[in-house]
C-alpha cells in the first residue's frame, strides 16, 4: 500500500472530479441535507430545499473550479427524471379525478384566467423593464414545469438555457412567497391555495404545497399539469399575436 501523499490525493481528485459518480452523489446528498435543514426550520418557506441545494452546489463548484458541463455529466441522471416525473402527473391527476370533478368549474376558471395571466403579466412587466425580446421570450413560459417550458421555448425560439433558469427561479420564488401571501390574503381553502401554487410555480411550488397540506399538494400537481398543457397550446399563438 502506498502512503497518502498530496500527489496521490491530487490524482484521486482528478479521477473523481471528472467522473459522473461524484457529482451525482453530491447532488443527491446535498438535497437530502437541505431537506433535513428545511425540516429543522419547521418548513419555514424561506428555507427552501431546492434553493439551498442550488446555492450549496454552486459554491462547491466554484471552490473546486469545476465547470458546469463536468457537473452536469453526473447530475444529468437526476435531470433526466424530470421527463418521466412529468408523465407521472397523469397518475396524480387520475387519483384526484373525484376532487377535480367536484371543483371542475373553479378549476377551469382559475386555469383559463391564470395561464394567460402568468404569460402576459411577465411579458408586460419585462417589456416595461426594457428587457430585450430574447429575454422576454425566454420569460414567457416561466410558470411551466421545466421539461415542458423547454418544449415551448423550442416553439417560440427562445434560448433553452435562459428558459430553464427562469422557470426554476419562478418555481423557487412561488414556493417561498405562496404561504405568507395566502396567509396575508386570509385564504384558508387549501384546494385554491394549492392550485395557485402549482399554476404559478409548477413542480417546485407543488413540492412546497405537499409539505403544507395533502389536498393542496394534489391541487398543485393538477394545476401544474393543466397549466403545462394550456400554456403549451397558447404560448406560440400569443407571442405571434403580440408580434414577439
Amino acid at each position: 500500500m502506498t502512503s497518502p501523499t498530496p500527489e496521490r490525493f491530487f490524482e484521486l481528485w482528478v479521477f473523481l472530479s471528472t467522473n459522473p459518480l461524484l457529482w451525482l452523489t453530491v447532488t443527491i446528498g446535498v438535497f437530502l441535507a437541505a431537506q433535513r435543514l428545511a425540516a429543522l426550520a419547521r418548513f419555514n418557506p424561506l428555507v427552501n430545499p431546492v434553493l439551498l441545494s442550488i446555492i450549496a452546489i454552486v459554491i462547491v463548484l466554484r471552490l473546486t473550479e469545476t465547470d458546469y458541463r463536468t457537473y452536469f455529466e453526473g447530475a444529468q441522471f437526476v435531470h433526466f427524471a424530470l421527463g418521466p416525473a412529468t408523465v407521472a402527473l397523469g397518475v396524480s391527476l387520475y387519483r384526484n379525478r373525484h376532487l377535480v370533478r367536484r371543483d371542475a368549474l373553479p378549476i377551469a376558471a382559475a386555469l383559463l384566467v391564470g395561464a394567460p395571466v402568468a404569460c402576459l403579466s411577465v411579458i408586460g412587466l419585462a417589456t416595461l423593464c426594457g428587457l430585450d425580446a430574447g429575454i422576454v421570450a425566454a420569460l414567457a413560459p416561466k410558470s411551466v414545469t421545466v421539461s415542458i417550458a423547454l418544449g415551448i421555448a423550442e416553439q417560440i425560439r427562445a434560448d433553452p438555457g435562459l428558459t430553464a433558469v427562469f422557470a426554476i427561479s419562478t418555481g423557487v420564488t412561488g414556493a417561498i412567497i405562496v404561504t405568507p401571501l395566502m396567509n396575508a390574503l386570509r385564504i384558508k381553502d387549501f384546494a385554491a391555495r394549492g392550485f395557485a401554487a402549482g399554476l404559478a410555480s409548477h413542480g417546485i411550488g407543488t413540492a412546497r404545497a405537499f409539505l403544507v397540506n395533502d389536498a393542496a399538494g394534489a391541487f398543485a400537481g393538477l394545476a401544474m399539469a393543466l397549466n403545462a398543457v394550456l400554456t403549451a397550446l397558447i404560448a406560440a399563438p400569443l407571442m405571434k399575436l403580440l408580434g414577439l
Binding site: 373553479p106 395571466v117 428587457l131 429575454i135 401571501l181 384546494a191 385554491a192
Partner: peptide, 28 residues
C-alpha cells in the same frame, strides 16, 4: 439585466398567484 429580470419575474409570480386564487375562490 438581472434586476429587471428579477423584478418582472417576482412581480408576475405574485400577480399570477393572486389572480389564480381569487378566480378559484370566486367561482367556488
Amino acid at each position: 439585466q438581472l434586476i429587471a429580470v428579477a423584478a418582472a419575474l417576482v412581480g408576475s409570480t405574485v400577480i399570477t398567484l393572486i389572480v389564480t386564487v381569487a378566480t378559484f375562490r370566486l367561482v367556488a
